[in-house]
């Protein structure tokens, strides 16, 4: 499988830093530019170190860059909507529509239909939601949008629970994680084991033109995927892991580190797919055990104290290893 994006073999900072004075401009990220849109401006009320605030700016700035600043965004209820738009303030510096919790995909479809009716093929639509608004209440509208192949890029900011309403579990909450509704009690503490909803693969099953996953830790890869998605017409889906210090019980300073560890452990596979087939996966650069990831988060504290739960940690390791096999995550970077 190919590498997801062209890595610049650059000696001081490789493809990993945001920019760099020694890189040619096209090899720098959109975020490194002094004229980036800053789709989300100063003064938003996200928690310290919020991965979702960061991910949303990354995505929309890249989409603006790719389209010559012609983007309309639709937004489901969730943290991203609440911390950016307490009436009458807004942090958005792009045309932006609020929707309800479950219908961001339908609103996106509607905007796309209106633009088509007006013959405005130049303006592009991005619909966005948290994991709850995507995999749970929003899945019906989203599946419809996929099925009709509406010309919308749908982005899920996955922080693995309903954060805005106080950290309740969602269909995207990982096994064993503690949330307000899956307390760390009993023999099988935390979120029960099951398959959860693997939304990227559900999207792939719709055989839409483009599906990708990304994290806030690898900006070049994330921007590459957003810009690539804007090259397609039809339904596209990007699923982005955005650590949440509040819900995960992690240090605000560790947000990017955690996203990086999620990928390096194999817990969160980073790949892209066209028409239902995986075309590339980001290799793990230096594999680390899942424990390195889990132990930085209080939502997994019960796996280490009062007694160490090697059975549970082992089961999480097994599922990471399954991802590594399934997506071929090891090998030459």
């Amino acid at each position: 499988m190919a590498v997801a994006y062209r890595q610049v073999k650059f000696y001081q900072t490789g493809s990993f830093a945001v920019g760099g004075r020694l890189l040619d401009t096209p090899e720098r990220t959109v975020q490194s530019g002094m004229t980036r849109t800053n789709a989300l401006t100063l003064g938003h009320r996200a928690c310290q170190g919020c991965g979702e605030a960061l991910g949303a700016r990354y995505v929309l700035d890249a989409a603006m860059h790719a389209t010559g600043n012609k983007v309309i965004a639709a937004n489901a209820t969730g943290c991203l909507e609440v911390f950016t738009t307490p009436y009458p303030e807004t942090s958005w510096q792009v045309p932006w529509l609020h929707s309800v919790f479950g219908n961001a995909a339908a609103v996106g479809s509607g905007i796309a239909a209106a633009l088509r009716a007006k013959g405005r093929t130049d303006i592009r639509v991005v619909a966005q939601a948290g994991d709850g608004g995507t995999v749970d209440i929003g899945i019906g509208c989203l599946s419809g949008m996929f099925e009709r192949n509406d010309d919308v890029l749908f982005v899920c900011y996955d922080n693995e629970a309903y954060m805005n309403t106080g950290v309740q579990r969602s269909g995207s909450t990982p096994p064993a994680a503690r949330t307000a509704t899956t307390e760390a009690v009993g023999d099988e503490p935390g979120n029960p084991w099951g398959q959860g909803k693997d939304m990227p693969r559900i999207a792939m099953a719709h055989e839409i033109p483009y599906v990708a996953t990304a994290t806030v830790a690898e900006l070049h890869d994330l921007e590459y995927k957003v810009e690539k998605a804007m090259e397609y017409r039809g339904a596209r889906y990007i699923h982005i892991l955005v650590p949440c210090p509040l819900g995960w019980g992690s240090e605000p300073a560790d947000t990017i580190r955690l996203a990086r560890l999620a990928k390096e452990t194999g817990i969160f596979p980073v790949f892209e797919a066209e028409k239902g087939e995986v075309i590339a996966a980001s290799k793990i650069r230096s594999k680390v055990p899942v424990e390195d990831y889990l132990s930085l988060q209080r939502r997994y504290a019960h796996l280490f104290k009062p007694a160490r739960r090697d059975d549970v940690i082992g089961a999480i390791q097994d599922s990471a290893d399954r991802n590594i096999r399934r997506f071929g995550l090891l090998g030459e970077v």
Binding site: A17, V18, G19, R28, Q31, S32, A46
Partner: peptide
């Protein structure tokens, strides 16, 4: 060495380049 990381990774746009 002006890698732009701090400028890029701030969730609050609080770094001025």
């Amino acid at each position: 060495f002006e890698c732009d990381n701090c400028y890029g990774v701030c969730p609050d746009n609080a770094v001025v380049k």
